[in-house]
Design a protein around this nucleic acid. Structure first.
Lengths: 141, 141
DNA sequence: ATGAATGTTGACAAAAATAGTCGGGTATGA
DNA sequence: TCATACCCGACTATTTTTGTCAACATTCAT
């Protein structure tokens, strides 16, 4: 089980935009300096735009910026937009695939894992990352 | 982010073996009735054997059986053996890939996610599945 | 107006991973 | 010794990933 570069690049890009929030639109060329091929990043930003996570300004002096406040955008939102939804098992969406008894029991495991991981991803926002929080750890420095 | 059929088939097979624990070795042909191509399942069971999760008996009347008690085998063990380790980001194993400032900050997110998901996978054993527990939910019914 | 800067779109392609398939081995019980 | 099984490595088709490219649309500055 792994995350592809899409999700990783997507988070890099979104974090970049979060760091530069308020400084006007950031052109693709600038965002790409995080170390991602421009032409590839363009596609990912397109997905992020269609998901409502970034807005764009076309033409000269244009670029990309966050569509919402950093605390309203989660790692889960970003991964979902760039990699597509988490699919632990297609059994969860596609009914009628459990033609054997044992498999219906495993279905409940997939469901539990899927929900848990989604909750986990939703629990971290860009704001958390900006603030360098110890995610999920009770802060008490 | 998704699980491939390897992990899914692997869990099906291990759950089957858990259900038939104590009945002697189960031949590949029997296990394959969970709905997995025999020749493919053989590879997966080979990985599970090398990971120390199943033992085998060769020759006639031979087959596969759990190497340990169901409570000592977790979903995480199985997925790790069949799919390989969870790699949220290769940055976690491969140092020196964070040549840009922002990426080092995202690294902590990968680390946190990776640990959390591993803990989650390790928290469910075959015994839990046999007992149809409500994983992670406080039982009270 | 014009041109440079910039996002938009869809097609294309190389490389890797996935999901099997196959054939020949080796061990063992009846 | 034969049928039943596991063992192992090679092969292949399909899909996914990871880009690349070319043509187009929009806007700003002059």
């Amino acid at each position: 089980m792994k995350l592809s570069t899409k999700g990783k690049y997507g988070l890099y890009a979104m974090f970049y935009l979060a760091q530069h929030a308020g400084n006007g639109p950031q052109p693709l060329k600038a965002v790409a300096e995080i170390g991602v091929p421009e032409d590839y990043l363009e596609q990912l930003l397109g997905n992020l735009r269609r998901a409502g996570l970034v807005t764009t300004v076309r033409g000269a002096q244009g670029g990309y910026q966050l569509a919402k406040a950093p605390e309203e955008i989660t790692v889960g939102d970003i991964i979902d937009a760039t990699e597509g939804p988490l699919t632990i098992s297609e059994c969860l969406s596609d009914e009628g695939c459990c033609h054997r008894s044992g498999q219906c029991r495993t279905r409940r495991v997939w469901e539990y894992l899927s929900n848990s991981i989604n909750d986990l991803l939703q629990s971290i926002s860009l704001r958390d990352m900006l603030e360098q929080e110890e995610f999920g750890v009770t802060k008490e420095s």
